[in-house]
């Protein structure tokens, strides 16, 4: 029973990964791509790891999977934040149809 739950989590995780990567290709500028990709791929990979933890019988694999899950959940938003800030400092403009930019107003 718990094995089928694990397989369902694996499939849901891969589905979210796929949606995140479609967002990476479809959305118009760096910041939107970063949003879609970071959220979906983080949750997708965490679901894959959770499915692996449920399916396995080995204790060490489960422990390492939990460490990996917590690590990804902490570091992925941090990396996204660093990338967004780096992209803004590197001079990448917002999309043409963006409606508000308080950051640029405060910088100048």
């Amino acid at each position: 029973m718990i094995k089928y739950l694990g397989i369902a989590l694996l499939y849901a995780g891969v589905l979210f990964d796929l949606i995140g990567c479609i967002g990476l290709v479809r959305l118009p500028d760096v910041y939107n791509r970063l949003q879609a990709a970071t959220k979906c791929v983080t949750l997708g990979t965490c679901m894959i790891l959770a499915g692996t933890i449920l399916m396995t019988t080995s204790l060490i694999l489960a422990i390492q999977g939990i460490i990996c899950l917590v690590f990804i959940l902490i570091t992925s938003p941090t990396a996204a934040h660093a990338l967004a800030r780096g992209a803004y400092k590197a001079g990448v403009k917002l999309w043409d149809k963006s409606i508000v930019d308080h950051y640029g107003e405060d910088q100048s």
């Binding site: 967002g23 959305l27 910041y31 879609a36 963006s98 508000v100 308080h102």
Partner: peptide
């Protein structure tokens, strides 16, 4: 995010607040 990405018209209105 899945709704916004898969929607054919891309219903986004981005900005920095």
């Amino acid at each position: 995010v899945a709704f916004r990405v898969l929607h054919p018209d891309l219903p986004i209105k981005p900005g920095i607040v």
